[in-house]
Design a protein around this nucleic acid. Sequence first.
DNA 1: CGGGACGTTGACTCAAATCAATAACCGTGG
DNA 2: CCACGGTTATTGATTTGAGTCAACGTCCCG
Lengths: 288, 288
Amino acid sequence: MNHPHDSAPAAHGTTASSGDFSPAGRGSVADLLHVLATGAPSPSSGLPTAARRAVCLRRVPAGRYLMHAGAPSEALYVVRTGTFKIAHTDEEGYEQVLAFAARGALLAYDALCMKHHPTSAVALEDSTVFGILWSDLDGLCRQVPDFERELHRALSLALSQTHDLLDIMAAVSSEVRLARFLLRHSGQLAARGQSPRRFVLRMGRRDLASMLGVAHETVSRAFTTLATAGLLQVNDRHVEILDLEGLRTFSRSTRRPPEDVSPFNTRRSGPARRAAARASPLAAPLPG
Amino acid sequence: MNHPHDSAPAAHGTTASSGDFSPAGRGSVADLLHVLATGAPSPSSGLPTAARRAVCLRRVPAGRYLMHAGAPSEALYVVRTGTFKIAHTDEEGYEQVLAFAARGALLAYDALCMKHHPTSAVALEDSTVFGILWSDLDGLCRQVPDFERELHRALSLALSQTHDLLDIMAAVSSEVRLARFLLRHSGQLAARGQSPRRFVLRMGRRDLASMLGVAHETVSRAFTTLATAGLLQVNDRHVEILDLEGLRTFSRSTRRPPEDVSPFNTRRSGPARRAAARASPLAAPLPG
DNA sequence: CGGGACGTTGACTCAAATCAATAACCGTGG
DNA sequence: CCACGGTTATTGATTTGAGTCAACGTCCCG
């Protein structure tokens, strides 16, 4: 139905694609907007037609920019299908990838307070978005309270997901960074009702590396390391997680043992607890 | 005009300086809430008393937690005075600092969609916050449209600031990371009407290191490196930026020359442009 | 005074950036 | 059809930046 290209040998079958509406996506912004945009269920359900006209659907072919950093912002977008790469681009043209956005993600919201987009968004595959002009947003919120509620939920989610990203980037070793990223991705897929164990990464190694803050060669090596350890099976962008629990355990490894840190000067009970799990966590599971 | 204490024994009584309302803070959420909480101007200005009762003021002494990760969430907070450290804490007790929050920052918003806080917030100095119970939020938004608008502005800002953080953490070298952090901090101070060149960091080296994703010794070394280069003057937590422009230039240095990256497969004009500023950018300005 | 937290600096080691070579893939066009 | 340039992915060799361990000084508080 959607990507007749792919041509993928591995991990095809069950629509590796991030498209396909998730009926399991209980009441996300995307689902709500879908109802608004296409009068799908209950066509007589008292939804103001004005609200419907406020929501427009837009196709974005692979490789096309939905918004350019620095360009004036017109609308708020919500990803319906596909994947986008969100990035900052500094004046020398060096690109810092900030996130990858899939179904339900809010785009351009960070432009609300400015006249221009701080970030750019480019489609990594053929995608579609819902668009709502800034000028229509207030009215839509007032007419469809559910939308406003979901908008806030989505915002809250976006915020905590960005925090997760910081967690990932703060990880000590490149393998842990990658492991955390894959787990996060897996979890997001699961939340959308897709397979959390088998998926196709929509971005290249360079973009991934940029987001993780490492060199792209390092991402490559980290992949093979995790694969050699039996946690993953990797074939280019096709990833299968073989040992989800093991990966999770591995992703928690820190180089430094946790120093029982008191928050400030606050002295509390025990200075004890030391000597948590140390040792290179990949040494053991290696099938050598 | 500002730091009357300085040299202080670090955050004692007199509400260290990041307090002092910024009259320059044109219409931030904080200012708006301040009007609501204290009926400052135009007491008869038709502000619903219900709205006033929804906003409560709360003191948080230095070192005290405003919210604990994992604890149930009751309210949305907006920082009025002081500074907070926002962090994730993994199950082994290892703390990952995510951000530092100053006046106007939204706290606990990421708990909106969950029952429990994903992050914890601890005051780094004596601080005060506005608190709004989740149950009161909807009503307040409806009664005070300005508040809702400002809330959205603040959210948008928070989102793009988190993106900036990712930019910082993605920086190649530890010195650049620190430089970018200091510039960001400087800019935020300036936006609040305080000196962008001279300030006191409210967090310790370890917290800073955690947020930058480096070892605390490395932060120490990065400080002395920047100071030796003549860009800064550092004395413990007191920082003075001597060469703002130089620091800005330095903060842009990337190790890799920018690869004229085409976003996807999109081929555009020039493959040219190469050989931008290379070479260790600190070697030159050293006053040896 | 001693204990504790913090900050700085040095020495050593290692993980990852860098440089480099190879292979696979894609669309284009002879 | 295959050859071609372009992009991407993997792997290897080498170098170096930063993590780690450790020592030391300071300040604060009890």
